[in-house]
Design a protein around this nucleic acid. Structure first.
Lengths: 339, 339
DNA sequence: ATGAAAGCGCTAACAG
DNA sequence: CTGTTAGCGCTTTCAT
């Protein structure tokens, strides 16, 4: 049936469309990629033939010939962390309807795994890359610098390689700590799980603020390398109160922890916010619906994702066209009932 | 520098490795894909050359030549729903360290978008596909049936196209409803958001059980097409109690809803479980840490993901080798404090 | 605005 | 076990 085809998946090719439309293959290719430069007449014939044959381009052939794929790599440290599922959604919604596929790599909070993924993704000649931190290994960073595609680093402001979208994580934690102080709490604690570099830096920011007003007490700082979860939040509060029972406020490094702490407080009949204030970080949807509603530093996760993909697509479409290459989306301290 | 190369990204190719190792290109190819069939000596030379040149295969060229890519497509209806983030994790962990990439497609609970994604994914000649339902459009189903790669349908048992991993969703809901009845609750309600086909069927199962023991009351069934969230869970309970204040138990179609209902009960000083029982569905980590701890029908989401990818990889490696093609992973009714 | 020719980097299909 | 020969389906380059 098909004209040649070795062991024929008789899927139509560019050449099939070309001969059906009575033009050359390259005209079909151009009709698809930049319809503007093809004559009205040719375009119509080609589009008709594409529809009739049910042609879909082969991305592998395209990537091979053009040395660039339609893949956009997205490197995240975790698939379960709600923070990143919001980012994902922003990215996916923005990529929707374009010719690009998003491919997620999960490096599980390991810079070494991240480096491996950078290598793997780069070997696919991606159209662009979104990476979730500035904490690459030196080699990882070098690979990104040498990459022949635009790169957006997300979540933070700081020393970015190419472009960045984020907010000042340290200022955000400071805002939370100051909020606690302004509400009159004097013996604040801090709980955090999964002490990745960013979590470490945030803890540092908490120490700075509390030290500056003479409220820093290391006994009130509880961390664990385990992954964050609601259960861990409860445990950490338990341990914190065992070590420093007079703690009157706790800054939680994310919402899971805060919910866990809130539940632990309920279990012990500790009144929030009277006996203990709880301030959360990120502010996923759940936080505002707790009883009492959690005060939180709200971070623009979804918007980070959509802005990152938008910048990337712009830059892919017209290299050098993105002028605002480092975007600070800010954060917001939202006071509710728990403080 | 490089021998030819048009405008040289001077990345080494198979041919470069071959000449460096003093063998032919195909031997290098074989060394990479099936080391077993290459002589010890050739293999060592090739591996040394690969390491020395820093060679990485070009997946596009490989896909084009072999007519099959290293992509595994994973179609999910939502990126935010915690249910699917657990599935994702299972899939990603299982794909870790293989030569396959997972590519996620989000069809946002639209069978039409799903059909589009099936088409798009198929155009990439994926090595395999994992799809999250049995509710394709007729055309979507036809595309899957004709696909030249293995396909695993996940989440449910039922009328699968190729392979499947899941559990009996209807039996799971029935177990929840029966649990409520066995605990002595007589006026059970049901709340659900995002009424996709699966949610509809689960509601049907709830109706069956309650009708069978004369407890079905449509006034106690509250649904909304909006996406599920903790906030919506609260609203739904509020409406439910407005319509049927004597409701003494509520089956929630997922954990977000159950948490929202629990918080709404707390807000209204309704004692759980004495005045109102709450039974959840899925049992994400948070559920067991609530106060009171939520009773739930626990579903094996993570395991579904890891089992699905394992079956797929087996079948890709040796077509026809998977004998147990339809796996039922079961569920578990876990009674805690909320019932 | 359109086309012809020449690969992109790899693997299938034979042969040896 | 190893090599040779042809492409895979598309885009680039250079003409026209």
């Amino acid at each position: 049936m098909a004209r040649k085809s070795r062991a024929g998946s008789n899927r139509p090719t560019l050449a099939d469309v070309a001969s059906a439309a009575g033009v050359s293959a390259i005209t079909v290719s151009r009709t698809i990629r930049s319809p503007g430069i093809v004559s009205e007449k040719a375009r119509r014939k080609v589009q008709e033939a594409i529809a009739r044959l049910g042609y879909t381009p082969d991305p592998a052939a395209s990537a091979l010939a053009s040395r660039s794929s339609s893949t956009i790599g997205l490197l995240v440290p975790s698939l379960t962390n709600n923070v990143f599922s919001d980012v994902l959604r922003g990215v996916y919604d923005g990529a929707q309807g374009t010719r690009f596929f998003v491919q997620i790599g999960n490096y599980r909070y390991s810079a070494l795994e991240e480096e491996g993924l950078i290598r793997t993704f780069l070997s696919q000649r991606p159209a662009g890359l979104i990476v979730s931190s500035m904490d690459q290994t030196p080699e990882g960073r070098r690979l990104l610098q040498a990459a022949p595609c635009p790169i957006v680093q997300i979540m933070e402001t700081g020393d970015a390689i190419d472009m960045s979208v984020g907010f000042d994580q340290l200022a955000a934690v400071r805002a939370g700590a100051r909020h606690l102080r302004d509400r009159g709490y004097r013996r604040p604690g801090f709980i955090s799980a999964r002490m990745d570099p960013r979590a470490q830096r945030r803890l540092g920011a908490f120490r700075d603020v509390t030290a500056a007003c003479g409220q820093l007490d290391e006994a009130r700082i509880l961390t664990t390398p385990q992954p964050s979860s609601v259960g861990i939040g409860g445990h950490l509060l338990e341990q914190l109160l065992a070590r420093a029972p007079d703690t009157d406020a706790v800054m939680c490094n994310n919402d899971d922890l805060a919910v866990g702490a809130l539940m632990e407080a309920a279990r012990r009949h500790i009144k929030v916010p009277d006996q203990l204030a709880i301030c959360s970080y990120n502010d996923i949807e759940m936080a505002r619906h707790m009883v009492p509603a959690l005060s939180a530093v709200a971070t623009p996760r979804r918007e980070i994702g959509s802005r990152a993909i938008a910048m990337l697509l712009d830059e892919i479409g017209a290299p050098g066209s993105v002028t605002e290459r480092h975007v600070d989306l800010g954060f917001e301290m939202i006071a509710r009932e728990s403080t």
